[in-house]
Each structure stands twice: as structure tokens, then as C-alpha cells.
Design a binder for these strands. Sequence first.
RNA 1: GACCCCGUAGCUCAGCUGGAUAGAGCACUCGCCUUCUAAGCGAGAUGUCGCCGGUUCAAGUCCGGCCGGGGUCGCCA
Length: 613
Amino acid sequence: MANIFGDFRRVLLSALDDLVAEDALPPGLDMTRVAVEPPRDPAHGDLATNAAMVLAGQVQQNPMVLAEKIAAALQGRELATGDYRGSGFSVHAVKPGFLNIRLDPAVWHAQLRAILEAGTAYGDSTVGQNERVNVEFVSANPTGPMHVGHGRGAVVGDALAALLAKAGFAVHREYYINDAGAQVDALARSLYFRYQEVVAAQPESRLLHSSAVLQAALVQPEGFYPGEYLKDAARKLFQRDGEKWFDKPEAVWLGPVRDFAITEMMALIRDDLAALGVGFDAFVSERELVRSGAVDAALAALTERGLIYEGVLEPPKGKLPDDWEPRPQTLFRATQFGDEVDRPLKKSDGSWTYFAGDIAYHHDKFRRGFRNLIDVWGADHGGYVKRMQAAVKALSDGEAALDVKLCQLVHLFDKGEPVRMSKRAGTFVTLRDVIDQLDELAGEHGKDVFRFIMLTRKNDQTLEFDFAKVTEQSKDNPVFYVQYAHARAASVMRHAAEMLSRDQLSDAALAEAPLGRLGDPLELALIRLLASWPRIVEGAAEAHEPHRIAFFLQDVAAQFHLLWTKGKDEATLRFLVGGDPELTRARLALVRAVALVIASGLRVFGVDPVDEM
RNA sequence: GACCCCGUAGCUCAGCUGGAUAGAGCACUCGCCUUCUAAGCGAGAUGUCGCCGGUUCAAGUCCGGCCGGGGUCGCCA
């Protein structure tokens, strides 16, 4: 894939080699910090390099003098690779020691051709070198439908995974099902409560005579889940099993009812994920891990390394829990790996803590060959990051790295008014509610709106989500603004069909258009922006920051709208130029390239580009 | 008390892993808008980058210490 920055860097390095050969520079210089970047200010040219300033210290020379020297060595060279082979450039040494490079426009025209030839694959990179990455996200407890916070995590994880794939990593998406702890027992008891209600309401029940008594005896269990969805599940359970469990002791029904509940809840969650367009390569069950002995294996691995011991922890600072008592427990030496305290692995009842299971899970990822691990969590799990990283470091002997992306809260608003949520008051808003609402307001593109907006903030920034704003058709709304640019490009192409034949309008044909006719500064600026897409992909992928793409797409849309508007004032700048089909084809090549790059970016986000609005 | 995140224009936020004069949108002022798709366009004004030190050719960006806001803090997940 054409990458002008890398290509120019090679030219620069060969010029520096020549200077070394001429004894103008000493051998053995460290070039790692020599960068070729787009300058912030377009007045500084197309490319800029800090070479003189980075090397000045090493060779004890004035950076400006050195810059002049390098500029002279670059003089007369040509770009040796890519579609722009043989193109020239000019170099200027400037102020503190920067080298500003201006490329022949032909270089940019070649970039434009490359976009048309690559299509939405433009921006694909090989920096990932097919290295495997495991992205774990959502992992919502199977105790009910997803809420908005889960939705953010789902979108961030999914987009990050797609971004990494585009950057050349071999990505694996996983969902960890927390189906082993006390919460799923509470879920099972809650479902059983609803089940009893269903049975008691059966007119023909053989237990009808005692239903009044039973009603009085019905007690909501500890940690009761009040949602309506459990009533549905209870009806299904009754349909399947009838009154079978009704008068049995808990020891009998708890297991089967729990299994049923988890299956039902995961079905709900899968529906929610499907509504968002999020898919996984694997769902990993905590209970399955425990059953398979994975926890024992992980703990054995830690024991082998001398990282487990029986000990008593200091009481936590701050608010002391009421029932605190010093007690010896099984601890992991997390402090050896940067955590504040050593962490318990067993509960007082002898069962594993959540942490123990999670250690086993991450150990399992490592054993499956993953060295790059990414977890996407809610910000309320922030206190858990260090211990998990400590465990990964310990179990992989430092070979694997875990990056945790914490997603901050989403605050829902409508027309500036906060949407108050309370589980107790029944005004709890599920993810599905939000998407349905958006479908209504935005015409069936609810998930696209939701996904895009979720990515318009860094993950660690709280996000304000206003139903009115995200569905309004105006420039203030980034989803609309970007989609409109895509639709507008499509619209221009439809109009072009009145001037040119279908064959002439294919991407392949447009790639052969006389692109040299594109010489307006605005046109070249737009091409430059489009050509930076591969760089954006690589940077965002390396930083694990998908939100950068949202900002890039807004930039592209803004530049495109700007050019379009310019055509209103200056007829010569219109895309469709009557009487000049060649120029028109060149302009259409640019229009198509805009659409392709936007589509390429939206694809990373899992958002469908629209051709009409 | 400890740890994590945040602090950039009046507001909401970017700032491309250290680059040149710190940006965008909203709001504000002024002008424009019968033409490829309309939901707008152009111009103007706006800053102790929370504060103080340090690292270096160069710091909003990295390090240390404060201040302010949020979150978390044994056997919940």
C-alpha cells in the first residue's frame, strides 16, 4: 500500500548514508527518532522531517547548518518507489532546523489513483504482521438485558477489533460469561420466585388449593432481580417443565433452574448484540473453565513460581466493612508485579473468587497462543486493572501484555434534559430501548447512530448522548455530517450518469482519468487528507484508539463539503463541468475517493454508509 | 489514606505517542444563500493548556509535587 511518509523516509535515509560516505557525517548515527510527518501547517509543505534536529546533538553541529547540508544532499533526488516513481520534490531548511518538503502534485495524483484501485481496502496495513490479538469485551453478567454502558463497551471493543484487523493483526473477539459466582445463584432464585408466581396463577394447578398460602409464603430472595424479563423466562420454564420444581427443595432445583436462567439471559444478550451488529468468535464460560480444571492449572502455574501463599491482609483503608475480621487466606503476590496489595483467590466458603477465575481465563488465552491481550471494561472496574495485569505478567513470565480500555459512563439526555434512570422506579433504560428509540427517530439506522456516537469520545471520557442531538439533521451532528458527505458523493455520481457512460464511471475507469487536471489548492488539500488515511489507521491501531477515526471522518466530510460549497460560488470548481468531460472525470475520481475513504472508515465502525438521505 | 481517570476558548471536546504561531464545533458579531441534493457558506473575536518545579534544541504532550472533579478500595462480579 502506498505510504508516502515511509517512502520519503527511505529517500531521506539514503541521502544521509551518502553524507556519511562523503565523511560529512560520522557513521553509526541513531536514526530511530528521525521522523517524516505531515506538518500541522499546510504552508510548511507536504512533508516535514526533524532529521537535522535529532542528529544535531549526536554530531555536535548546529541544526540549521546540518539542515542545509541535508537539504543539499536531497536536491535532485526522486522518489524511487510507489506509483509516483520518478516524481520530484523541493526541500527547504527552515527556522529551528526543520526540513520542509513540497512534493510534485503528481505524487498526490498517484495517491488518488491508489485509493480508487484499492477501494474500501484502502488504508489496510501490514503493521500488525498477522500477529494475534485477543480482544475481550462486553462480558456482561448473564443476569439481564444489556444496558447502555454495555453498549458502549460493545461498540468500542468491536471497532477496536475491526481497526486492528484493518491494521494487519489477526484478531479474535471474545466474550467472557460470568456464570459461576453468587450472582447467577441470585438470578436462579429470582427466576424461581417468578416461576412460583406462574405456577400459583395456574387455575388448574393441583396446588391451587394452597395458592393463597403459597402467595403469602413467596419471599423475594436476597439480591432479587426485579426486571420484567424474568417473568417471560419463568413462563418459558413453566412451559418446559410444568410444576416439576414447585414443591422441591432448593438443592434440587437450583442447578437446573440456574442453567435455564443463564441460557435465557445469554439469549437476551445475544439478541441485543445482534441488534448492535456485534459478533464474537468465542463465548467463554467461567463455569466451564472451573469445571475443566483451568483454575487449578493456573493456580498450579503460579504456585510453581512461588507466587501463592497463605497470609493475612491488612484491613482496607477508608471505610472499613462492618464484618471485617483478619483471617488467613490464599493470596497471589500481585505486589511483585506492581499492584498495591496481594490479592485473595478463595472466598471464605472455599470457592474461588472472581479474580481466580479471571486469572484462569487469561492464562487460558495465553496458552491458546495469544501474547497481545486487550480487555474492554467499565470504568467501575478500574481498581481491578493492576491485579489483572500483574497476573498476566506473572503467568506469561512477562511474555504477554494486557491493555485494559476502561469505558466511562454514558449520560443519556433528551433535548438537553437528563434521562433519569432508576431500576427501582422502572425507568431503567436498556440498550434495546435506546436503539429502538433511535430507529424511530433516525429511520431504521438506530444502531449506526449509536455506534458512531459511541466512538466520538475517547473511551476514558464520559459521553453525553442526547437523543435529539444525535438524530438531528445538521452540521452539529457528526453522524449526519459524515453520512451526508457520503450521500452527497453518491448523488454527484448519479448526476454524472447523465453526462458520462456507465463504463466511464467505474472506479477502474476513473483511476485512469487525467488526474493531473486536479490542481486547485482545495482539491490537493482534500487528496492529502485522504492520503493520510493509512497513517491514521496505523496510529489509531497502535494506540488502541478507535475514536481517532471518528475525528478523521469528520475532517474528510468537512473538507469535502467545503469543496462542494465552493462550487456554488465558482462554477469552475464544480465537479460536473459541462463541455469538459476529461476534467469532470478527474473531479469524479476525487468524489469517488472521498466516498471510498468514508466507507472504509465507517466499515471499521460497523456503520453502513448511506447513498441517499 | 491509597490507587486509577479527568482538568485545553464562555460551552462540548480534538490535539496524530515531544515539534514550528495550540485547533474544531456550538454560542457571539457582521455579511452571503433562486443553480451538481436542500438540511447552509464566508469573515471576525476568543486561551496563565489547573498550579509549581524538572528533563531537552523543543513540553498541552514525558517525570516529580501540589490543587480541584469523578471512580474504586478483603471473602461482589
